[in-house]
Simulated scan of single mutants.
Amino acid sequence: MEGTNSTYLVEYEINPDTMAVLPIEIGNNTCSRVLEVEGEYVVTMKPTEIVDRSCRYFGSSLKGRQEGTREIMGVTHKAPIIVEASNKIFLFPTASPTKQECAWLSHNYVSDCKFSLHEETTVIFTNKQAIQLQISKGSFQNQLHRTAQLRTIVTNRMDKPNKRINFVINPQSNDNLPNKTGI
């Protein structure tokens, strides 16, 4: 595996340290190369199988998460997803999840990117590790933007209950509230 020492796994669940789930061919099988902040794994599952398994671990499925994104933002194709909101695990696909070349990237770890003329993108993660993907500049930027939008919407929704609780605990003046007696 390109000179790296990878640990081989039969199954894997995405966690807060997961940066990317990339497709690789081993023999006649599509498997996954999983990049974490401080390690790398080769997993015998396809990338989309890992994403679906991880969504199920957190109580949904890939299809359910895609439907949630469609409901929140109206995105139907190559939808970014929330794997687990409280740990801020938001992923986006680089192609249709039905295609073998689809990789999944964690929005949280994408630090920078460089684009070539041949629809190739170099993604630089927060730990300075870089990978090359077959995705155009426009498509990559669109996926990054959509995922940022999803994160913002979901984070704001998660913060709203705390604002309501704070109002109940520390109510402002009652002077501006309507009089219930109508007087």
Rank of each mutant, 00 (worst) to 15 (best):
T7I: 15
T7D: 15
L9Y: 15
L9G: 07
V10A: 11
E11D: 14
D17S: 13
M19D: 02
N29S: 14
R33I: 13
L35C: 13
V37M: 04
E38N: 14
G39I: 02
Y41M: 06
P47W: 06
T48A: 07
R53T: 08
S54N: 05
F58I: 07
S61V: 10
S61Q: 00
L62A: 10
G64P: 10
E67Q: 01
M73F: 01
G74V: 05
T76P: 01
H77N: 09
A79G: 02
I81H: 09
S86V: 08
N87Q: 09
P93M: 05
T94K: 09
S96I: 04
T98N: 08
Q100M: 07
W104T: 00
V110K: 05
S111Q: 13
E119S: 12
E119N: 15
E120V: 15
T122G: 07
F125S: 04
Q129M: 08
Q129Y: 06
Q129P: 08
A130F: 02
A130G: 14
A130S: 14
I135S: 06
S136M: 03
T147Q: 08
T147L: 07
Q149G: 00
Q149W: 03
L150M: 04
V154H: 00
P161T: 14
N166G: 01
V168I: 15
I169R: 11
P171Q: 07
S173N: 01
N176G: 03
N179T: 06
G182V: 00
I183P: 08
